[in-house]
Nucleic acid binder design. Structure first.
Lengths: 204, 204, 204, 204
DNA sequence: AATGAATGAGGTTTCATTCAT
DNA sequence: GATGAATGAAACCTCATTCAT
């Protein structure tokens, strides 16, 4: 899961994420991404077999970012509410930090469901993405379940509860504008408030 | 603001909303919409000057749906929590009822912000949409503010609180599948639970 | 040749000439002409079977304008140079007077030669136009020939000489801007100078 | 101003000029040009951003042809009449030599003036064209002015005189048919006669 | 590793024309 | 006499992709 990625590839992924974010996944052309890179399409096609594969790799990377950021924050010795608060804030910081990537994920979530034809490579990547997403969700699922059994949270359908939780944690993706130059203080406030709202929605 | 819309135009809007929802706003072609209508592109272009204008009109309609549904449910005589609960449920019912339209709104929210070139007409429509959105948000903002002053809600940044609230209320758009034939009972459960979670997230 | 034309038809022809002039024959759409008229395409198609027929009728009218204006100015009793000067000025005044129509003629002259398929009606009209044009040219041809035999003009190929003469007489069509509001005095100057240059080019 | 143009680009320009000439600027489709090239539209759009830009480049090239041909023929040591005669003949030879290009120029001169919406690139090219045209006109303007001061030409409005002069020099564009295989002798005759007529029209 | 030329499929849009009313 | 809806052909343009270098 932690593939080594070359500098050139990494640059391409950053440029792609930026373009997908600013122009939209569908509107951004491979030429746009090349222009952002300051080179030509050829470079991109040398490293990625198709636009779809490039997109999928961006999504995979985004998933990896939050997974690695949150994984280490889980603390089974703390009450679930405390542990989840750490995770929630970690998630939010990471989202704000690699916003372009997470905007891309969001778009693919909301886009049409009726799949267009995909190559084999793209289907494999999509499967990896789904697996990663399930694993990430499981991190939260476990802690929410613990919170319920500890009596801190209302005993609701786990799937719905976790979905709602993650939705709120991702909410800055909808409205945060990094180009306006947010202060660290502002970011801290956001992380604290959103985490607090998200946990409040679960409370008994 | 409540323009009369001809039957033919209305049919086109429904078909467009359906296609935008199932295929995605960008992927759905004008031909797809025409096929859904069982007629030709020409019919669409006779009534709408561009795909962008058609999309904007769909969005405007979606906004009108929830506005009209919720507007009448506000009750300033009730405690804010009660009034907001009525509004929240009304919103959810309307969203589930005209799901295609709201899926479209969601997509345009998450897509790229860096405008591609728009015609005059499209810019005017976008301005109308923004205005309508602000007005709708204001309905909730007022009641949330009242709830805070009544002491029922935590005193948080209003903008963030309302944004979070509406996001949760719109969450079914992400996962609800009407094609699976939801029972009225199920719909009632959804409306109740989501409304409850949304209000819980605001509570002091 | 002097068909009676109804008021409605005449209005349509004026609107068409105006649009053809300002937008170009190809760029001007039937809708543009209808808009200029303040009515809809239907009105145009009620009176003219096709855009091509409408164009041809405009051209025919333009030809008629100059023919009728110049015809009566010929004076076989005067020296050819004098007679031609009267004709030349008459032509220029008429061109400036119905500029839109003459701009249209010019465009069809310069456009591509490889005909697109024409309906029967259009071919008939085109034939009428060619006939009219030949007749009009003949008016000048006769007088130029007389001028040569009188020794006032250089003995050159008649066709080339008349073509050159008419080209110069039509030259204001290329650059005259009626919207700048030319004074009668300016118009008189133009008519005199151009006529003088045109005749000078023939002189022995 | 003398940009180097690749072979492929040059081929495209020739094909475009040919199609614009034979079919008319508006009637000729990009597909027609591609067919003339024996390749696909894609090739054209790889080199030129739009049909308008392609057209403008053709015009620019045409302007360059005559400018370079005539520039070196000016001889301030000769009487203006002689110098202008050299220029006039040079212009005519060049026009006959690159007739397709000059037919295109003519068409754009006579077409509608009310601009349809143009991209930035096209507007820049149009500006270059206008500048080039003014410079070319200036070459003749200077010599005509000299001719007037030398007493060889009638003292008329310079703008009108030069416009008339150039119109006559361009007149073969209206009627010359290269496909009929003109002999060198015929071409020489044309150049001599037209030059003589054009200068005659200026004479005192 | 990267470029630049070229392709072809598919997209949006325009527009002359027909037709029921 | 005139309108408004609808059509279908054809236009311009975009863009993911391939390939020779």
């Amino acid at each position: 899961m932690l593939e080594q990625i070359s500098t050139s590839k990494s640059e391409i992924l950053d440029a792609a994420a930026h373009c997908f974010m600013t122009l939209g996944v569908e509107s951004a052309s491979v030429d746009d991404i090349a222009a952002q890179l300051g080179s030509t399409k050829g470079r991109i096609y040398h490293h990625f077999p198709s636009k779809g594969a490039l997109l999928a790799t961006v999504q995979l990377r985004a998933a990896g970012f939050t997974y690695r950021a949150v994984e280490g924050l889980i603390d089974a010795n703390l009450p679930a509410v405390k542990s989840l608060d750490r995770m929630a804030r970690g998630h939010i910081y990471e989202v704000l930090n690699s916003l372009a990537y997470h905007k891309v994920i969001l778009q693919t979530y909301t886009a049409g469901t009726q799949a267009k034809k995909m190559s084999r490579v793209e289907m494999d990547l999509q499967e990896q993405i789904r697996t990663g997403h399930r694993q990430y969700e499981m991190l939260f699922r476990t802690e929410v379940a613990r919170g319920i059994s500890e009596g801190s949270f209302q005993d609701r359908n786990l799937t719905a509860a976790v979905a709602g939780l993650l939705l709120v944690l991702n909410s800055p993706v909808f409205w945060f504008r990094p180009e306006r130059g947010a202060s660290q203080e502002f970011i801290d406030t956001i992380a604290r408030d959103i985490s607090s709202m998200a946990l409040a929605s679960l409370r008994a």
